[in-house]
Design a protein around this nucleic acid. Structure first.
Lengths: 129, 129
DNA sequence: TTTAAATCGGACATATCTGTCCTAATAAAA
DNA sequence: TTTTATTAGGACAGATATGTCCGATTTAAA
């Protein structure tokens, strides 16, 4: 969507699903989540589809996309799966996991949608299931 | 198990399940996996139970426990969930994920069972669901 | 005004993961 | 030798995640 939006083209659900080899109905659900969370703009009706404002492409970080789809689970869930695990009652791997997750958070917050889009366009990365 | 084994006590499934607030039948399945993968030793029959040799407690790293239960999935699975993603056809986050996973691998391979056991014993960490 | 092409959203179906139950096998103790 | 306390393992049940279907809504074009 970002790639096409940068060239002023709005893309339909069908086109998106086809491009990434993903079931249409399933892709639709994910796009709805992204739309609700204002990652992408959706336009209903004939000639409708999905697009992203150029300013958003520059601004949006991977962290925001992750949050739109998975919430803050990535940052909060215990490495051993314990429900009660937290800083004051840490599980045996808690503190070591906190460290790794900080690395992950840094990465997500410093990876922009623009950067990923460029990678796809120059053929450096791929996006097929 | 490690904690009790260090003091020469073998522990039963029941005791283990109770100690960590985990369903007995469910805990049994996990112990079976650990036993099959030689992380713990199981002894059948009356007075049986689970134990770990002192030498194993020193030797075993968290990475081996993770591998026994989840295989190499942690290191291989694509960050975006793509099946075909690998070094020669990388997804847009592939290389950044490789980095994070190296950090994770380092942590798992450098965290010993002994270290975790001590943390529990001195009351620094907890192990309840 | 009608039609067609598109997204939206709720209900449903399927697959996978998590957890349970029950019987068999084992081994110590009575 | 029988009983009892234990682990092993297969079959099943339930919960959650993944994926599908279909009708409602929207909007541009005929």
């Amino acid at each position: 969507i970002a790639s096409q939006s940068m060239e002023g083209r709005r893309v339909s659900l069908k086109e998106i699903a086809e491009e990434i080899d993903s079931p249409v109905a399933f892709t639709a659900k994910i796009l709805q989540q992204l739309s609700k969370n204002q990652i992408v703009d959706s336009v209903k009706g004939a000639t409708g589809g999905f697009e992203i404002q150029r300013s958003s492409i520059d601004r949006i970080k991977l962290s925001e996309i992750v949050y739109a789809i998975d919430g803050d689970n990535v940052y909060m869930a215990c490495g051993l799966g314990l429900e009660k695990c937290n800083a004051s009652k840490p599980c045996p791997v808690h503190n070591k996991f906190v460290q790794i997750r900080e690395d992950l958070r840094d990465m997500l917050e410093n990876t922009s949608l623009y950067e990923m889009t460029v990678g796809l366009e120059v053929g450096l990365t791929y996006l097929k299931r």
